[in-house]
Design a binder for these strands. Sequence first.
DNA 1: TTAACAACCGTCCATTCGGTCAGTAACAAG
DNA 2: CTTGTTACTGACCGAATGGACGGTTGTTAA
Lengths: 199, 199
Amino acid sequence: MSTPARRGRPGYDLESLLQVAVKLFNERGYDGTSMEDLSRKLGITKSAIYHHVPSKEELLRLAVDRALNGLFAVAAETESFEGKAIEKLEHLVRGSVLVLVEQLPFVTLLLRVRGNTKIERAALARRREFDRLVTELVKQAETEGDVRPDIDPAVTARLLYGMVNSLIEWYRPRRGSAGTELADAVCKIAFDGLRTQGG
Amino acid sequence: MSTPARRGRPGYDLESLLQVAVKLFNERGYDGTSMEDLSRKLGITKSAIYHHVPSKEELLRLAVDRALNGLFAVAAETESFEGKAIEKLEHLVRGSVLVLVEQLPFVTLLLRVRGNTKIERAALARRREFDRLVTELVKQAETEGDVRPDIDPAVTARLLYGMVNSLIEWYRPRRGSAGTELADAVCKIAFDGLRTQGG
DNA sequence: TTAACAACCGTCCATTCGGTCAGTAACAAG
DNA sequence: CTTGTTACTGACCGAATGGACGGTTGTTAA
């Protein structure tokens, strides 16, 4: 059923190890977490970690790639859409929130990468590509008259995703919560504002 | 005039050193920056740094305290205000954006603190206090009928400041830019949304 | 029973880390 | 020239870091 009867000695595999690692990286920061810290948390020795993964950085790479793949999957889905740009934009935002919620630890790690190594810089490059995509959509929606023209589209786009991405700072999954409610809240405030609608 | 003729051997003082340090901390992350890295950037030896500051953490403390003092000054100003809660809230947001812009490097460092040490935890505690203040204001504004009641005020508050704080991720000061325009943009989108208003 | 398999341990290593300390260099005022 | 003041150097230290390596233990399938 849930356990497909794995061969060999039981213990961590790469997946279960990655979960713990990413969680710890988020708590103390990637650079602030030593492999000793991680091994202590796992309950195994440091050298055992290197049986599963060739380096500390590889753990980071696996995590941020998972986050980026999730986000780009939503982006691809959005692009193959018919309709007005503002509808595409809302779809992208909703999808992004859902990815944030479902892959919270991975996305959290991604959004904190600073570009110290080749791998981190590659992640930043993909992030920028995603941001460009959002900006283009906002621009188009403005051209179509659905987004307020009194603010630079690039600024609007960044504020929008600033709000979306800030979820990682405080959102914590509760059992039974679908994430769609959260996406609703984000879309309401981002698109129509927190003020009571006059009308 | 601009130089009040300092005594002693010329070079860095605590202030000028702090500027460079905080900038580097923001580029590579606090944990990702060694005192050797910093000394290289400064053009002096590592031990020279310890003439100005007793420890690496003290640099962090000085920086985050400066950011927190700026934010709490605005908060105090806001509390001594007369008027509706929503007006207070807008004043707080505007003031926060201005502090963010004027003290960008310090606030940036503050918002990335993870709580690994006593000093970091103290900073996080003060941040939470500030967040409580914002939430209370949003709640009150909702009671007064000025903030949409269909979203949990705590969520609204967090999304609002998620947007505000996201400025540190992309805003870079340009000469001649006052920051008030940015505050305008933030308030417009946060309070009234990015969608074109149905007149 | 045995072979394949996968997870794990103990020991070791070169390097880097934050930090110390005793002394030196460069300036201003008297 | 001296004195006070401030910034800096170079050599050093114990601890922690990411990682290497050869050997071991526990589990399943044949």
